[in-house]
């Protein structure tokens, strides 16, 4: 007590240093204990990407493109995701939504690969190309696509030496469409109507 009153400068110094040490230790502990593995932004971006694994963006799969976006790449390189994905990415990253880069392909209807089995020679090249192991077969045996696992990336089409793989569009179930925003097309006020209609 006496020491504090007698040596205010020293006492303040000791207090500050000890506080600094304490909080420094806390921060150090937190940095180790609450460490997050990987890149959380890349994870979130990866959640949004359609996981077709088609590589049309120029990266070998969705995860690498997600990491590239996290590093600052543009968000419009994903044709399978299309406008919806670009919009979601723009919302997540708080950037301007830009139109799809046509260089990487066009937005297509979801499709699934079908092997014309009679023509398959069993070369296993498509099996090696498939990013999600959706093709079943063995060397010199007929191959087939497990349709429910296929992402429609069409990576298997090109390696096929006998061109026996077709990309077939998946039939889309009907559902209710949003009504036209009629209110923006009709003129409510009588004098706004076209002359013929008003007459």
């Amino acid at each position: 007590m006496e020491f504090i009153t007698n040596q205010p400068l020293l006492a303040a110094l000791i207090a500050l240093v000890s506080l600094g040490t304490l909080f420094g230790a806390l921060l150090g502990f937190a940095a180790v204990y609450y460490r997050t593995d990987g890149n959380p932004i890349a994870d979130q971006i990866n959640e949004i990407l359609p996981q077709t694994q088609c590589g049309q963006c120029g990266y070998p799969g969705c995860r690498p493109y997600a990491e590239a976006i996290a590093e600052g790449d543009v968000i419009n390189k994903c044709p399978p995701g299309g406008e919806a994905t670009i919009q979601a990415l723009a919302d997540l990253l708080d950037v301007e939504a830009i139109p799809l880069d046509e260089e990487h392909g066009e937005e297509k209807v979801p499709s699934v690969a079908i092997i014309r089995e009679a023509e398959c020679i069993g070369c296993t090249k498509c099996i090696q190309a498939c990013p999600v192991d959706a093709i079943l077969g063995a060397a010199k045996q007929m191959h087939t696509v497990i349709a429910s696992e296929c992402t429609g990336c069409d990576l298997c089409v090109e390696p096929c030496p006998v061109d026996c793989i077709d990309m077939v569009p998946v039939p889309q179930a009907w559902h209710w469409a949003l009504p036209n925003p009629v209110s923006r097309q009709t003129e409510i006020i009588a004098s706004d109507k076209p002359r013929e209609a008003a007459a």
């Binding site: 996981q51 969705c62 990013p131 696992e149 559902h175 209710w176 009504p179």
Partner: peptide, 23 residues
């Protein structure tokens, strides 16, 4: 329309999660 949209989104999300797992 919104319900159908959301259901479609859920389906797509489930499919993409599954694809990611497989990849």
């Amino acid at each position: 329309a919104s319900k159908a949209d959301i259901q479609q989104q859920r389906k797509d999300q489930a499919k993409s999660d599954y694809s990611r797992e497989r990849f």
